[in-house]
Design a protein around this nucleic acid. Structure first.
Ligand SMILES: [Mn+2]
Ligand SMILES: [Mn+2]
Ligand SMILES: [Mn+2]
Ligand SMILES: [Mn+2]
Lengths: 219, 219
DNA sequence: AAACTTTTTTAAGTTAACTTAAAATATTTT
DNA sequence: AAAATATTTTAAGTTAACTTAAAAAAGTTT
């Protein structure tokens, strides 16, 4: 299957996972930077290939085949991220950019070799789970977003769910990194802001960031 | 530039290096598995982009721009081969297959990181030279093909110039590998065959193979 | 429930990268 | 130097993946 198809199916899968965002063609179009018309076209095309169910004006629903394809691409993406992160000194954002392309040019054999080399890791450097070769995500994710964390508690960062360069630059500057510890010093619920203590620095985050930083409570 | 263009320019460069094979569209078409008509079309297209000079019925000549592009793709190909060879247990042929795709999806930044990680190697696992970031091949190749080697002399294998699976299977089976030693026991000049001694085995090679196995004399 | 706004779909068109078939030119054989 | 063969070019057509513009439907506001 083509790069366009793989990216399309992957975008549906990811949008489907993110709560509010639905999977109507317009949303996928925006995600991929193509026109709505192109997305509708592609949707019909993929329905004929049994990768998704298409009903006019309804959200797109991946079939089992489509889900399998999405998970295979995501697996390759995250394995590449893990490999590049391990071998090279590159920013998470750069690594993501390379993985976005390499994911489509990777045989199942090579994916296996990468996974094996890394000790079959369960998470990529963003903290996102890596599906296994059968497209299953076996880890259960108990982490919560910083916006839902409790005042006064200590947490470990488990996921940074973003592809945005500015966000990662900010994270790098402030020690926000997979595995690092922080304390939620104050929740400003009305203003949707969260104050945290990390590396002896107090920083105030707004919801754009607290909704994509996931953490596990330290007990 | 597209994958099709990169592969086209690379094919011209490689055919140009191989003595007899010329660079008329038909040859490139055969190399890439496309029709002659498609190759002529592409040639005109690339002439407009100043990647090559096109004159009806004449061999295609890369411009400086075209040569630079070809060498950049070849650099990425060979760096990938070197990396995959170092990290994973995969056959040279499989590694070549992956590199053939990855070479087109690799930023200059990533190529630099790979090169650095490997200690800026000068040769890939086939013994082919890796151009530097400026597209220069700085190593001088003094090796000769086995078909031109002298009876009774000892040699070290320096290049296996092929992408063919059967050839590599044969090589793996008989210890023909970059860096290994052999002795030319007999040249059957009339029949264009060469007898060698390697790993205490005597084997007889025909010109299909002796013309793509390059060696340096041991002194 | 109308009216307005937004989204989705349809329709028509473009481009890159191919194809096959036929015409033009080059190359080889006799 | 013809004739036969092979290669290259031109011409016409296809497909995937897009585009813009207009029509249709859905969703929202008053
Ligand atoms: Mn990523
Ligand atoms: Mn991608
Ligand atoms: Mn190769
Ligand atoms: Mn290639």
């Amino acid at each position: 299957m083509s790069v366009a198809i793989e990216n399309f199916v992957k975008a549906i899968y990811k949008n489907g996972k993110r709560d509010n965002n639905d999977t109507k063609p317009g949303n996928i179009a925006k995600e991929l930077g193509i026109s709505n018309a192109a997305a509708t076209d592609m949707a019909k095309n993929l329905a004929a290939k049994d990768l998704l169910k298409y009903q006019k004006y309804k959200p797109l629903k991946l079939t089992d085949n489509g889900t399998k394809m999405a998970l295979s691409v995501i697996r390759k993406h995250r394995l590449w991220e893990a490999l590049l992160f391990k071998l090279f000194d590159m920013s998470l954002h750069d690594i993501h950019r390379e993985a976005e392309l390499l994911e489509h040019q990777t045989s199942d054999l090579l994916a296996e070799k990468i996974s094996e080399y890394l000790g079959n890791p369960k998470f990529d450097p963003h903290g996102d789970p890596i599906p296994n070769a059968d497209g299953e995500i076996t880890t259960s994710d108990t982490s919560i977003s910083l916006s839902n964390a409790n005042e006064g508690k200590s947490y470990t960062i488990s996921r940074l769910m973003s592809d945005d360069k500015e966000f990662f630059d900010f994270c790098a500057l402030n020690g926000l990194k997979y595995g690092n510890t922080l304390v939620v010093s104050k929740q400003f619920t009305n203003n949707k802001m969260t104050q945290i203590l990390i590396n002896n620095n107090t920083i105030l985050l707004n919801q754009d960031f607290t909704s994509i930083i996931y953490v596990n409570e330290n007990k």
